[in-house]
Design a binder for these strands. Structure first.
Lengths: 339, 339
DNA sequence: GTGAAAGCGCTAACAA
DNA sequence: TTGTTAGCGCTTTCAC
């Protein structure tokens, strides 16, 4: 059933029916009600393409997830973030267009989506510290929000991010408070902004206590599961092994656990920091439950809020860039001191 | 730049330009080349909405991911599957519309997307053993492919799935061959088809060796990480604990590992079965690398192929339903016998 | 408060 | 081989 058929059935013009359904003020309440009811009964849904063509709004947002190599695993936090965003879009009548693209194809994809008029805005994931997409998107001219931040730029842009720096600072401080002096860090790639910030937080905390930085305690790379495993194995086998390890992601933590268990060491306590779904610190495990559910739902919440920001920008394109820094929560159990 | 402007620039009609660009045969090669070049130079991209309105094809596929409760974690395998599908769609000029929806809203979403003419087909995820969406989608009439299978139905439908049954049968046989007699199974929800099939595979293997089924060795539920941890703790604490445990998913396996490590047991060998990204069996870990990369990329491949199936069906809607059963690969290290 | 008509940008009969 | 024309289904001026 389309507008024409519905309006004929009602003995009204398309105009009036359209106005009634879209809440225009000049329609009488009685007609509006009659139209509403008929639309309901006949399950009338405006054709999205026709509507978009007429209004110039695609009613869709694109999320572009970059993968950095052919077999790069898609970070599970995207699922949660996107799940949250999807919820917001659905509530506002928008669709979420998802494209998982090799990093080298990204520019083409952004441009193509914009030129085709297929979307009203973009969500940018996995920002680099130096981020060429910022210029690209500013050039394209459609609204966008970055999931994360870009450290080196003078371009204004909107973003939503967890406070990675402070979270890692806190996690490190916590370990220091418990008496640990040698703390390993297995970080994500430091060309990505969050990796840079996390390392900064870690170093800030150590330096504040007068502890010298020891680069042999820090690993940083992609390939997270293997990295976690190998790095931990090396750390534990070294002459002067750390008594605690901070793992920068859920996946890395898997490898850490496996290596610790293999070494015959017992984890006496897990400490989790809620940054996305990442589990940060491993040591002294007394058997407490990691808070995966809680952490996952915090990413989803970030997706909900980020999407809301983007829709706000679309509605009012000339406002100044919006930003949101979400404070990470430390989830900890009782301290038992160093192993 | 739109068609009209481009055609005026070229001194041709819109029709000719359109035909040249869309590969219609009646255009002379010289004009076609001239048009192509101009389109390239001017970065012309047909307006998607206008094109869709004119052709009646949305050039988009919807993937609807159900979540079963508010804080239900989105299974990471979806990321990979969707990543693979995205790749196929991009190559064919389709967009992927992703909606993560509470299960109770699903019907509304399918119907709405179809009624709005926003998509040309659906991908159905997380099928139940008894699946109401099958009837719904048959009623809606748009092409669809199920990621997984539905056991109880007479409706014809297309699907792509891993052979869960045979994979779990093989995994169980492998453990049996190594001398294990008491084998735990921590399964996903058995109302979901894959859970049902996995249990069947496990039981088939045991029965074939004349081993009696012991329901106290089998757990089945959602909440995978906690389930894995709690179930393993119980299993290990029981009077007659298993010497090997089959974990039905990556997330469950996390919990299993944690519980094993806490119990002071050493995992001597991991056995992984490549079904999506799931890690199935835990015991006797000698330190071999789990093949996460390989397993993840196999899900992605399933996404690539599944999307291709759906596009094929869209191109030729009257063909019989297509199906693909992908055989799971066992990835194992050397056997060391029971713990 | 309601309607007629033009137009969004493209495709596809039908003509030439 | 190319062009003319009529839609696709909706929104939006403009007129009544």
């Amino acid at each position: 059933m389309n507008l024409k058929q519905l309006s004929e059935k009602l003995g009204l013009s398309q105009t009036t029916v359209s106005r009634a359904l879209n809440g225009f003020p000049e329609v009488s309440e009685s007609t509006r009600e009659r139209v509403r009811r008929a639309a309901e009964v006949n399950q009338y849904r405006p054709n999205l393409m026709a509507k978009s063509l007429a209004t110039g709004r695609a009613m869709a947002i694109a999320h572009i997830i970059p993968v950095f190599s052919k077999n790069d695993v898609v970070n599970p936090i995207f699922s949660e973030f996107v799940a949250g965003a999807s919820q917001t879009y659905t509530e506002h009548g928008y669709e979420l267009i998802l494209t998982v693209a090799d990093q080298k194809d990204e520019e083409k994809i952004y441009r193509s989506l914009a030129a085709k008029r297929a979307v009203d805005g973009f969500f940018v994931h996995s920002p680099l510290s130096i981020e060429p997409r910022l210029e690209l998107l500013t050039d394209i001219g459609l609204p966008f929000v970055v999931h994360g931040r870009v450290s080196e730029t003078t371009l204004p842009y909107s973003w939503i991010d967890m406070n990675n720096n402070s979270a890692f600072k806190q996690a490190t401080e916590l370990l220091l408070d418990m008496g640990h002096q040698r703390i390993g860090l297995i970080n994500g790639p430091e060309t990505l902004n969050f990796g840079e910030l996390r390392r900064q937080g870690y170093e800030t905390a150590l330096l504040a206590r007068g502890i010298e930085l020891d680069s042999s305690l820090v690993y940083s790379a992609a390939l997270p599961e293997q990295l976690g495993f190998n790095a931990t194995k090396e750390l534990l086998a070294s002459a002067n092994p750390p008594s605690a390890i901070i793992a920068s992601s859920y996946i890395v933590a898997l490898g850490v656990r496996r290596a610790i268990s293999l070494a015959g060491l017992k984890i006496k306590k897990d400490v989790s920091v809620v940054i996305h779904d990442d589990v940060l610190s491993y040591f002294d495990n007394g058997g407490s439950e990691p808070q995966f559910t809680a952490t996952r739902s915090s990413v989803r919440e970030a997706g909900v809020r980020g999407a809301q920001m983007l829709l706000d920008i679309i509605d009012e394109p000339d406002r100044a860039p919006l930003t949101q820094l979400l404070e990470a929560q430390l989830i900890i159990g009782a301290s038992t001191g160093p192993a």
